[in-house]
């Protein structure tokens, strides 16, 4: 997992398959690593879709609380994305 995080520091995004290839392991192993990294708060899933707070209308919801507000039906089949959380 250290190597995974290290790899991403070059700024390039990668798919799970690419990570598996570069780290010489299987996509299933990468899945496991992502699960753990998410759990300890080293990475987080990027959520583009509307959050529960505003029901997706995004009218009058507080942008500071509501982190994702894509319109309804937009970006349905975009897969998943994780971003690395900067450690301070």
């Amino acid at each position: 997992m250290k190597r995974l995080l290290e790899l991403l520091k070059d700024g390039n995004s990668r798919t799970i398959e690419q990570l598996a290839a570069e780290l010489g392991t299987t996509p299933a192993d990468i899945d496991r690593q992502l699960g753990f990294l998410e759990h300890i708060g080293a990475i987080r899933r990027v959520s583009f879709s509307a959050q529960k707070t505003c029901g997706g209308s995004c009218k009058g919801c507080n942008p500071a609380e509501c982190r994702g507000c894509m319109p309804k039906n937009a970006a349905q089949n975009m897969g998943e994305m994780w971003e690395v959380i900067k450690q301070h």
Binding site: G11, N12, S13, V46, S47, F48, C58, P63, C66, R67, G68, C69, M70, P71, A74, A75, M78, M81, E83
Partner: peptide
């Protein structure tokens, strides 16, 4: 990255093909 943006920014751009308002709201991430 070359534009100084996060990879996430692509999504608001794609949504803007539908509606710029959606793109602006999508930039919230």
């Amino acid at each position: 990255g070359k534009l100084g943006l996060q990879g996430k920014s692509v999504m608001p751009f794609l949504v803007s093909f539908g509606c710029t308002m959606g793109g602006a709201a999508g930039a919230r991430v």
